[in-house]
Simulated assay, not measured.
Amino acid sequence: MGFLEAYKLYWLNYFNFKGNSSRSEFWWVILWDLITFLAIFITTLFIAAEFHTLFLDTVMIPLSIWEIINFIPGISITVRRYHDVGISGLWYFATPFLGDTLIQKASKYANYYENVNEHKFILVIDLIGIIIELISLVIILKPTKFQNNKYIHN
């Protein structure tokens, strides 16, 4: 799968949560998204500099719009990537979302506690969130599973 073909499929499969996505398709889309994100970021910085304003909104609004547009197809390609390795796409919602939630909650409450034991508890929750994120990364990095994969139909 090539760079342009992967990105075209990304948008054509906007709401497609069935089937599978190869590693190359997934990572080409990630690269496209990174390039586009950086292009939007740099362009908005130049525009802000031209008008002698560097309000956070000037940069964040276009980036937020881009992320909103990519939210659903990003989830769908990841669900299809999970399918490609023979894992239910529902696990996607348990891994990154749970990991992110734990990390964010731990970070939010870490400053409120002065007791050392409470800080240790927050660190353990944070560590669990990071481990869950790493599990998701390992799943995405795995090669296609052809045998006994109910999500791949030949």
Results as ranks from 00 to 15, higher is better:
44 T>M: 12
99 G>L: 07
135 I>D: 00
10 Y>G: 05
36 T>R: 10
105 K>Y: 02
84 D>W: 08
120 K>C: 11
81 R>Q: 00
128 I>W: 13
13 N>R: 07
98 L>S: 09
153 H>P: 04
45 L>K: 14
104 Q>E: 14
8 K>I: 12
131 I>C: 13
62 P>G: 04
113 Y>R: 02
69 I>V: 13
75 I>R: 00
99 G>Q: 01
16 N>K: 15
131 I>Y: 15
143 P>H: 02
66 W>H: 07
147 Q>H: 09
132 I>Y: 02
120 K>Y: 13
145 K>V: 13
26 F>D: 01
57 D>Q: 15
141 L>A: 04
20 N>D: 14
82 Y>S: 00
124 V>H: 03
78 T>E: 02
105 K>L: 14
63 L>H: 01
45 L>F: 08
65 I>G: 04
3 F>A: 07
13 N>K: 14
81 R>M: 01
152 I>K: 10
31 L>P: 07
19 G>R: 05
141 L>G: 03
145 K>F: 06
84 D>Q: 13
102 L>F: 11
32 W>Q: 09
145 K>S: 12
17 F>A: 12
55 F>S: 11
17 F>M: 14
53 T>R: 11
17 F>S: 08
41 F>N: 12
4 L>R: 13
89 G>S: 00
42 I>L: 12
103 I>G: 08
5 E>K: 04
37 F>M: 05
135 I>A: 09
151 Y>E: 06
105 K>T: 08
130 I>S: 11
24 S>H: 03
110 A>P: 08
57 D>N: 10
56 L>M: 12
125 I>L: 15
63 L>E: 03
37 F>W: 11
17 F>H: 03
21 S>Q: 04
24 S>L: 08
115 N>T: 08
91 W>K: 01
99 G>W: 01
58 T>G: 15
105 K>W: 08
150 K>L: 12
62 P>T: 00
78 T>C: 13
20 N>H: 15
35 I>P: 12
103 I>N: 06
54 L>D: 09
95 T>F: 05
96 P>V: 01
38 L>A: 08
91 W>A: 03
97 F>Y: 14
86 G>V: 11
119 H>R: 13
21 S>R: 15
153 H>L: 10
42 I>D: 02
73 P>V: 05
64 S>H: 02
126 D>R: 12
38 L>E: 09
45 L>N: 06
115 N>P: 09
106 A>W: 12
4 L>W: 15
122 I>Q: 09
86 G>M: 11
6 A>P: 04
41 F>C: 04
104 Q>A: 08
47 I>G: 03
111 N>D: 01
10 Y>R: 06
145 K>Q: 10
135 I>E: 05
89 G>W: 00
48 A>F: 04
67 E>A: 13
132 I>D: 00
136 S>G: 15
93 F>I: 07
80 R>L: 02
153 H>Y: 12
70 N>Q: 07
96 P>K: 11
112 Y>Q: 10
123 L>Q: 10
68 I>C: 06
103 I>R: 10
100 D>I: 12
112 Y>H: 06
44 T>L: 02
98 L>H: 05
94 A>P: 02
40 I>G: 06
77 I>S: 09
76 S>H: 02
99 G>N: 01
75 I>T: 13
